[in-house]
Amino acid sequence: MDVATQFAVENLLARYVHALDDDRLEEWPGFFTDPCVYKIVSAENYGRGLPIGVIYADSQGMLRDRVSALREANVFEPHRYRHLVTSTLIAAGDGGLATARSNYQVVRIMQDGRASLFSTGLYIDRISFAGPAPLFAEKLVVFDNGLIDTLLAIPL
């Protein structure tokens, strides 16, 4: 894999997690193609081929709806995330798509200052280079820690 592609994918991942951690959720759908797939699924379900996850979206509209719901409808205690993404491995793709696997960890910080490891797992991304900037055509968030503490509101 060439250095330019590696850099472009890591840059996309970095911009993506900074947008989430900075609470710029309105920018989040713009990191995806339309249509797209965004799915958060436990390693248990993923490994056993079970389709149900925690969040599933297949359009930018569904991603925007998730943000709207978080902003307008859903009730939860204020908190934020700090993402760490590392060990990005890129496989040569086809049809202009690259497949990238990265390890991630998300620390959740509550309003009283308590921070804990909220989610740890694997991003399995299919990245489109068809446009001026790379975009996620598919993002699978496969989380290892299948016992979710309290709730999941902000996307991973």
Binding site: I52, V54, I55, Y56, L151, L152, A153
Partner: peptide
Amino acid sequence: DMIRLKQSNLVGPAGYVSLEDGA
């Protein structure tokens, strides 16, 4: 299958009508 997959967004730990129950 797709209807159920999409509507799984309504329930569960991140469910549009259930995440509050977690808290």
